[in-house]
Every structure is written in structure tokens, then in C-alpha cells.
């Protein structure tokens, strides 16, 4: 009884929150709805008795959406609405609707066919974290390691991209001065060409 009430509360609030994420023109509302939607999803994990996954969902998505906030802060004025460009609203609606329909069919087919089974049911007395660890390091070891490798590659790429010119300061370094000089020269060239034209 309580679980049903909790499930429908979480379900309705998740749906509404993600609808706001998609519909809202205000970046702050969209992001906040996204973050709280993620928190609501973790409620489902708790309902199913998967405490560990629920907490991981909470921690990971809280951090991830916070990084998104960083981008929002850099690109948009958070207190204003954003003008969106809709080139072809009908097409967007059609494709989006079709995709949603497809997802519904994919996910509801096994439910209708009664083929939903827990591959790794919760064992009494074994903690959640242990169960996840067992599965992760036996059956799914290769995907897990591949994912770790990909993240490592991404991290190194990020460091290289961001850290190219970290070693010298823009204000004191001679190399930077030279760069500025070159840029000024370029600017001057462009202006002269403009003048000649």
C-alpha cells in the first residue's frame, strides 16, 4: 500500500519534472527540474530495495548536473527566458513522438509477455554493495574495464585540451607577449587590407 503510493508519487513527479526540463524556456527551471528529476528517480531504486544503486544515482547525477549548471552559467543569463529557434516544429514533433512510442513499445513488450525476471535477485543477508560488486567483477568485468579505459582516455584528452598553456602566465610570459604581438600584427594587416580594398 505504502509502496504503491510512493511509486505513484515518484512516477508522477518524475514525469512532471522531466516535462518541465523539456518544455521550459528558462534555463534555471530546466536545470533544476532535471536535477530534482534525477533525485526522484533514485527513489525508485530505494523502493526496489537497491539502496546502493539509489545512492550512486543520487551522488553521480547531483555532481553531473552541477557541471551542467556551470555551462548554463557561462552561456546564458539565468534570469531571462531563452528564445528558441524552431525551424520545423512539425518534423520535430513527429520524430520525437515516434521515438517516444518506440521506447514505450520496447520497454513494455517484455512486461506484456511476462518475461521480466530478476537475473540477480536480492539475497538475504548480502549487502547491496557486495551484490553489485560480485556482478560487476565477474560477468560484466570486460564492459566495466572498457568503460574505465574510455573514461581515462577522455580524462587525458580533457587535461591536454585544457592544460596546453597552463604553464605560462598570460601577463608575464614572453611567449604570450609574442602571441599578442602576432595577433596585433594580423589585426593590423586585416585592417590595412580593408583600407586598401
Amino acid at each position: 500500500m505504502y509502496e504503491t503510493i510512493a511509486f505513484y508519487t515518484f512516477a508522477i513527479s518524475t514525469t512532471i519534472l522531466f516535462l518541465i526540463t523539456v518544455m521550459s524556456k528558462n534555463v534555471l527551471y530546466a536545470m533544476t527540474a532535471l536535477a530534482s528529476g534525477m533525485v526522484m528517480i533514485s527513489g525508485f531504486f530505494f523502493l526496489l530495495g537497491a539502496d546502493f544503486l539509489g545512492v550512486v544515482q543520487l551522488i553521480v547525477y547531483v555532481g553531473a548536473v552541477m557541471a551542467l549548471y556551470g555551462f548554463a552559467m557561462m552561456f546564458f543569463d539565468a534570469t531571462r527566458d531563452i528564445k528558441e529557434k524552431h525551424q520545423n516544429p512539425a518534423l520535430v514533433f513527429l520524430l520525437g513522438g515516434l521515438m517516444a512510442l518506440m521506447f514505450v513499445v520496447i520497454f513494455s513488450a517484455p512486461i506484456i509477455g511476462d518475461n521480466v525476471q530478476a537475473l540477480y535477485p536480492i539475497v538475504e543477508g548480502v549487502g547491496n554493495a557486495q551484490a553489485v560488486g560480485m556482478v560487476l567483477f565477474t560477468k560484466y568485468l570486460v564492459p566495466f574495464e572498457v568503460a574505465a579505459l574510455m573514461l581515462l582516455v577522455a580524462m587525458i584528452a580533457g587535461i591536454i585540451l585544457a592544460g596546453k598553456k597552463m604553464d605560462y602566465s598570460l601577463t608575464t610570459s614572453e611567449a604570450a607577449d609574442e602571441e599578442i604581438n602576432v595577433e596585433e600584427k594580423l589585426q593590423a594587416d586585416i585592417e590595412r587590407e580593408k583600407g586598401e580594398a
Partner: peptide, 17 residues
């Protein structure tokens, strides 16, 4: 709950919103 410490840290992280 079995994952108390993670829950507390996660909740504190959520508080930063």
C-alpha cells in the same frame, strides 16, 4: 539503511544546490 555513509555524503552534496 545499509549504505548510510554514501547516503549522508550524497545528501550533503545535494544540499549544495
Amino acid at each position: 539503511i545499509n549504505v548510510g555513509i554514501l547516503f549522508v555524503l550524497g545528501m550533503m552534496a545535494a544540499g549544495l544546490y
